[in-house]
Amino acid sequence: MTTMATAPAPGFEPPGVADFNLPPVFGEITKPVLLLVFSAIIIFAAFRFTVRKPALVPSKSQFLGESFHGIVRNSIARDMIGAEYLKFVPFLTALFAFLLVNNLFGIIPLIQFPTFSHPGVPYALAGLVWLLYNYLGIKRHGFAGYMRISTWPPDVPWWVRIILTPIEFISNILLRPVTLSLRLFGNMFAGHLLLLLFILGGQYMLFTADSITLKVMAPFAFAMGIVFTFFEAFVQVVQAYIFVMLTASYIGTSLVDHH
């Protein structure tokens, strides 16, 4: 997108949107498609492995599986949804595992592409969540009751309502899936771009640039790349967590009783 012309050597072409348009591996199948299938397979295999011999006193692998399940169950679902949380634990756990593995693909060597830096699957998952929490809310309270809960906050003067109700409607019904998916997509996209920038920039400085100063500076670019790889690992985990957390909290607000 941006080109800075420096005299003799070819200018540095910073990584941009074009880097995310991967060539298909075969036919219509691109790398993210393979990664999606691969992630589902390894998640299922890993979970199957942890419960191959379920025991009261868990083995190490069973303990890992239980811990993962337990985090979603006890610190996300139970806190956010309340009494009926057990019904949603399987969905939330599967969602968390799917998001986490696909996000972490962004820093796993040889794969190094976060699947959700393409927005398709985040849209689909957010749509799924949107359908789920609206369905639950309408089933629980009826259509009018659900609208009242999501757009009619109690104890508000009428002149505030004129502004507040449309805002609540937009933010609770329309914007939630958009922000849910785009938050994930945006973080993965920007994170991948950041890593590309440091690694490709370091490569350019080391191999292409004329200036000795730039060649000397190149290791610092790689070092920053490594630092930001750790930062990205953190961001990827947090984004998966936030996605599941918000899903649980949307489900929780749909099921809540205001009476």
Partner: peptide, 13 residues
């Protein structure tokens, strides 16, 4: 936690 994450989602929107 629930309230915080809803507020966070709202402002990050």
């Amino acid at each position: 936690q629930g309230i915080a994450f809803i507020g966070f989602a709202l402002s990050e929107a």
